[in-house]
Design a protein around this nucleic acid. Structure first.
Lengths: 243, 243
DNA sequence: GGGGAGAGATGCCGC
DNA sequence: GCGGCATTTCTCCCC
């Protein structure tokens, strides 16, 4: 226990990334208040002083502190406490550790950013460059058109002199997507003082209720999926490899 | 390296939670496609077979696989590969490890759930039980009222025979909150065949544009903050302790 | 399992 | 810094 303690203190001082496997209770106070009863967790303190608490299942942390928090470690009777504070955000988190299973620490260095393809932004670009994905007579004019009430993914016209507003969703369009589209259409009608505005949702699919709302307001749906260039590349690779 | 390998293989077989500190490259293919250049990261494999990749900074994982994925570890030349698959979700993630800094593993057990106070739900309940927070003559009728176009946080009436719809936000109400409220108000007007419907946003604050939109549609704003009982308790404690 | 919406959301970009 | 919004969102609840 004592050697774990000094390892953690030393690693904190050296700004290393620290992982602690332990049995603990957790109290949080800040934007909300929370308590987590005794159980086994991973405590991670990163080199930017973010703290994460992960249970042995699930994707998301069960508790956390944002970067630039401060952490102190204290032994009290048979327990070890990690006390974390973020004074600017008025956030506090206390870990009461009953048993430590392991401690690992190392000075990790990483400045890389994720290169990602298939986002909504990529979808907008694809549609902007290939307007026929929306309609044979759709002509794209701009992307990310700014409005007081938000920005429009793809903005264009059709041959009947309508303004066309396209809202992209990378997965399944929902009620929120339709109200978002409606907000833009109404705003553009107001600004341009015209009723000749079409609203289109471009997404792989749409929920039934959202589709009903869409039709009720005279908007349209186009089945479009986000581009995934790397997947295509990978498939080509497989083909070349004889798969 | 070889002892790390066998430790990881053994821990995988025993369903332990594993943490690997390493220098690696990562490729992901699934809902989108991504690549992450060489850098130092934490690889976490949980006992439910979720996999997380964390950089030494930031709150969120940079890459991940959902629970119930399968993971295999392979040595090839001087590199170690972790190959993760989730066939039902058609997701794939490969970690190419150039150097391992440390490996920790342990059979973590935890069935606890977070007890949290201060959510939007708590806010709805507070308003439901203390309707005067909204208006002296507001009477609450129900919570989570179901609508085809979504469910309403707090539903009630006033003394002028209006139906009152309250949408709660625990932080700052935005344009989405207003369009959400509008959707409910319009739906209730339609169902009840009446125009006597008031819409109210209850939140600590509201963005300027959202406030403008709110006023444009004749809705109202009430400054209400979510309850934080534990914080009050803690303050009382401090007072007792002489702080 | 899908729909709907919150989250102590986080993170990104633009003004 | 705030505003607006996507996210490989994740998670929960309810049908």
């Amino acid at each position: 226990m004592q050697s774990f303690l000094s390892q953690i203190e030393s690693a904190l001082a050296k700004n290393e990334t620290i992982v602690i496997g332990c049995s603990c209770e957790i109290t949080y106070s800040g934007r909300a208040e929370a308590f987590l009863q005794l159980g086994d967790r991973l405590i991670i303190i990163k080199s930017d002083k973010a703290l994460l608490v992960h249970q042995p299942t699930g994707n998301a942390p069960i508790n956390y502190m944002k970067p630039d928090s401060s952490h102190s470690i204290i032994q009290q009777d048979s327990a070890v406490w990690i006390k974390s504070k973020n004074l600017p955000l008025k956030e506090y988190l206390d870990v009461c550790i009953h048993a430590i299973h392991f401690v690992s620490s190392h000075p990790l260095k990483d400045g890389q950013k994720l290169e990602l393809v298939g986002s909504e932004k990529d979808m907008s670009e694809m549609i902007y460059k290939n307007p026929s994905l929306i309609d044979p007579d759709f002509k794209s004019v701009s992307m990310e058109e700014q409005t007081k009430y938000g920005f429009i993914d793809v903005f264009g016209t059709d041959r009947n002199g309508n303004i066309v507003i396209v809202e992209c969703k990378r997965y399944c369009a929902d009620l929120g997507a339709v109200t978002q589209l409606r907000r833009y259409v109404e705003r553009i009608k107001e600004i341009k003082n015209t009723d000749k505005v079409r609203g289109i949702i471009a997404a792989p699919k749409i929920t039934p209720n959202a589709d009903k709302m869409l039709k009720d307001w005279g908007f349209e749906f186009r089945a479009v999926s986000p581009p995934k260039y790397l997947e295509r590349y990978r498939k080509d690779q497989k083909r070349l490899d004889g798969f």
